[in-house]
Amino acid sequence: MKQRDLVRLKRVLLTDQMRIPNGMADLLRNDMVTVLDGYFELDKKSLQLVMTIEDSGLYRISVQAQASAVRKMQTI
């Protein structure tokens, strides 16, 4: 079988194993926006959240976002 078909098969099987409830990715994404927006002038639409599962069963979660500046920190 062609390599891309094998990669697709493995991706489908791994994704099925993730057991991440529907909508969880959206909730997590919104939380990430809230957290990062407290520190940066965040381009909220730029935030990308990718969750994958490795052959070993470990989850890999990566968050990528763009910000135009760091927010001023206020101390008491």
């Binding site: 079988m1 078909d5 094998l6 098969l9 493995k10 099987l13």
Partner: peptide, 10 residues
């Protein structure tokens, strides 16, 4: 088509 060995491994 997938080979049986590829399926087994996956």
């Amino acid at each position: 088509s997938f080979r049986p060995e590829e399926i087994s491994e996956s």
